[in-house]
């Protein structure tokens, strides 16, 4: 009995595993760095302060984990494609911080359409991002430079999500 349950569990894992590793299809859209909604920070000082691609990967993993457990934001991410979210967030942070990346995600308005977001959700993301950057040991001055780029996105993200 135990053996059978274990086998079944292993089989379920094998079947389930690829579903997590692959992104779900999205409606076609024009890919462009302009979709990031802001010009990158000049120079690569902030990208380096984030500890490059690897640091950004850790920050994004931590951010997504916090957003999924925070009761304020958990419901918003229930049906999210986390593979795609992780990849596009990493690209976004890398591109905006002055790193050698291109942003291939959707523009901010389209990406947040119909989500019904409010400032409380936007601000929760900001604070989880700050926590994640603190854990990564990113100096506040560099955090603030990155946040200065994301702060104006409150308009396309929150306001457009009402439509």
């Amino acid at each position: 009995m135990m053996m059978r349950t274990a086998l079944l569990a292993a089989a379920a894992l094998l079947i389930a595993a690829p579903a997590f590793a692959e992104e779900q299809p999205v409606k076609p859209y024009v890919q462009s760095d302009a979709n990031a909604g802001t010009k990158p920070i000049a120079g690569d000082a902030v990208f380096k302060a984030l500890h490059g691609q690897e640091g950004i990967g850790r920050i994004v993993d931590d951010l997504i984990a916090s957003l999924r457990t925070d009761p304020v934001t958990a419901d918003i991410f229930k049906a999210s494609d986390f593979e795609r979210l992780r990849r596009t967030l990493i690209e976004d942070f890398c591109y905006v911080s002055g790193g050698p990346c291109h942003y291939t995600g959707m523009d901010m308005k389209t990406a947040h359409q119909h989500m019904g977001l409010q400032d409380i959700h936007f601000n929760a993301l900001v604070q989880h991002l700050e926590d994640a950057m603190n854990k990564e040991g990113v100096p506040f001055r560099d955090q603030a430079r990155l946040l200065a780029k994301f702060a104006p996105m409150r308009t396309p993200v929150v306001d457009a999500s009402q439509n």
Partner: peptide, 11 residues
């Protein structure tokens, strides 16, 4: 009255 101290970092 108007303006935004926090979010309008592009202005």
């Amino acid at each position: 009255l108007f303006g935004d101290a926090v979010y309008a970092q592009d202005s």
